[in-house]
């Protein structure tokens, strides 16, 4: 659980950085109504005040100035290195969040492809087969007909998985993202038992790793390369957003169904439009999965059956997920879920 100490340390870092690089753009505090904004502008809002993200293969030396140790675990000496949190121009730490518009999601059925969010995530993160960090479930969640539910890690604010971890390998960052340090994980899998959303995956064997991933310098926020005997899951791509781009799944969605945003500044974008996040949620009767459990997910859903895509909600089925790089991963095993 993130203690107050860690939040403070994050804020301090932020302050220091903010003074060094003032990138304020006046307008951000004005309440924004739902209006179209260009993609470029939207990304500027989102990354405002943020530092550049660490390139995938950045050598440690370059990162020294950019990386802050965020205090995790039982005592101050127990640290996992993660990048300093992104902040608003007034220095408040951004609170990443996702809003998924089910009225716009048809599981990519209409275009005859596997769900593009899942595919892009797999390509971008080299998520080992058969892990689908964002998985599109098909369900009847009420109102009749089928519903496609893209489900990333729900990034709970009261995360059951973080509570049970014996070694503090999984933790919440000040940005509200739940991450896993695969270099610390002991593979006891109690977090998988604790997660009420089935969003955690285990490397049962040596995971398939393509050569380009094998060379990567391991970062907690990227989880590349994957290692055997550890747990993985959606990491919410905070480093990409800090770098000024959107998570793979958001970028890839052909129907712009996935919104990514910052609850602190109350904005969200699907890569095409920028909106006020709270208004988007409330005006569309947004809900969260298994709200009654009290896990406080950071992923919100807007109800629907893909009707905005013009899909017949009575039709089920979609293309199976593909791991395009799997052929390049030599000597690896894969398993079924």
């Amino acid at each position: 659980m993130p203690g107050p100490a860690s939040t403070t340390s994050g804020a301090d870092v932020t302050k220091r950085r903010h003074q060094a690089k003032p990138r304020a753009r006046g307008q951000a505090e004005t309440p924004v109504s739902i209006r179209p904004v260009s993609r470029r502008e939207a990304l500027k809002y989102i990354t405002m005040g943020a530092i550049g993200a660490v390139p995938l293969m950045a050598p440690g030396g370059v990162m020294d100035g950019l990386v802050a140790d965020v205090v995790r675990g039982p005592d101050a000496t127990d640290q996992i290195s993660v990048t300093a949190p992104a902040t608003t121009k007034s220095g408040r730490i951004r609170q990443w969040s996702m809003i998924i518009d089910l009225a716009k999601c048809d599981g990519c059925q209409s275009q005859g492809t596997p769900p593009q969010c899942t595919t892009a995530c797999i390509e971008g993160h080299f998520a080992p087969q058969p892990m689908e960090w964002i998985e599109v479930y098909e369900a009847d969640f009420g109102g009749g007909g089928t519903q496609f539910i893209p489900t990333p890690c729900q990034q709970c604010e009261n995360p059951p998985c973080v509570k049970v971890c014996p070694v503090g390998a999984t933790f919440s960052t000040p940005e509200g993202v739940v991450l896993i340090d695969q270099e610390r994980c002991i593979g006891c899998r109690i977090c998988m038992a604790a997660c009420p959303y089935d969003r955690r995956f285990f490397n049962w064997g040596d995971p398939p790793i393509p050569p380009e991933a094998a060379l990567a310098d391991y970062q907690v926020e990227q989880q590349v390369p994957a290692t055997r005997g550890t747990v993985m899951k959606c990491d919410f791509c905070p480093e990409m957003v800090r770098d000024g781009t959107l998570p793979f799944c958001v970028q890839a969605c052909p129907n712009d169904a996935i919104w990514y945003g910052d609850l602190e500044e109350d904005i969200a974008t699907n890569g095409r439009t920028i909106v006020k996040a709270s208004r988007l949620i409330s005006e569309n009767n947004g809900y969260r999965l298994k709200e009654h459990l009290g896990t406080q997910p950071r992923v919100h859903y807007l109800p629907g059956h893909g009707e905005d895509v013009g899909r017949d909600p009575g039709v089920e089925g979609r293309m199976p997920t593909d791991w395009p790089w799997i052929e390049r991963a030599e000597g690896a095993v894969s398993w079924t879920r």
């Binding site: 995956f201 285990f202 490397n203 049962w204 064997g205 040596d206 398993w335 879920r337």
Partner: peptide
């Protein structure tokens, strides 16, 4: 080979 050799899986 890891826990791959068992029949346990994610779910």
């Amino acid at each position: 080979d890891g826990l791959y050799v068992t029949d346990m899986r994610d779910r």
